[in-house]
Amino acid sequence: MISLAWSLLSAFFKIGLFTLGGGLAIIALVRQETLAAGWLSPAEFSDILGIAQSTPGPIGVNAATFTGYRVFANAGFAQWQAAAASLAATVAVSLPSVIGVGLGGAWFERHRDDLAVTCVFAILRPCVAGFVCAVGVALAVECFSGAAAAPGGAPGVPARVRDALVFAAAAWAGCSGRFSPVWVLAAGAAAGLAWTFF
């Protein structure tokens, strides 16, 4: 239990620490760390993203809360232990901010227009944008290949057409930035419900 807790906490501390150059970098980091450690399946990761975006709160913190609980619940611990793990993961992902704001805040305040800061972010921002795009591609591949599908198996052709339409509409909505993620996801969920029950 101690070693599992330690690897969970150090993973989320690292994730918080390397969330640089735009908050969405955290999506790519959480995906890589949790899938590589075998803590979450691709379907669970996709579900967490949906849940994290459609409930209030920063997405990285929500992902940490959920992952902390799932990891301990999947390993067979009691509910209260899993709840404690989810609280600990939430603290762990926020801890780098304490350090950054406490130690780096004053320094950054004075140096934020420095050449070095400008140069670092000029390289970081396009890189992070590329990583976020790659997560979108990976999620789409999993969705269409059926790797993220429910036990029902890979989707048939009509379901794939529906998925492609939902994907395209959501990509447009996400890119335009004019819609809250809550409405985009609600529309997707409504499409899924309408598909099954009508």
Binding site: L24, F167, A168
Partner: peptide, 24 residues
């Protein structure tokens, strides 16, 4: 299950859209 099945492509699309906006 039905709602989640519809939400998965929406999540994928939205993240891809966010990424595209960031690249732009």
């Amino acid at each position: 299950e039905a709602a989640m099945a519809g939400m998965r492509p929406a999540v994928a699309g939205m993240i891809a859209g966010f990424g595209l906006a960031m690249v732009r």
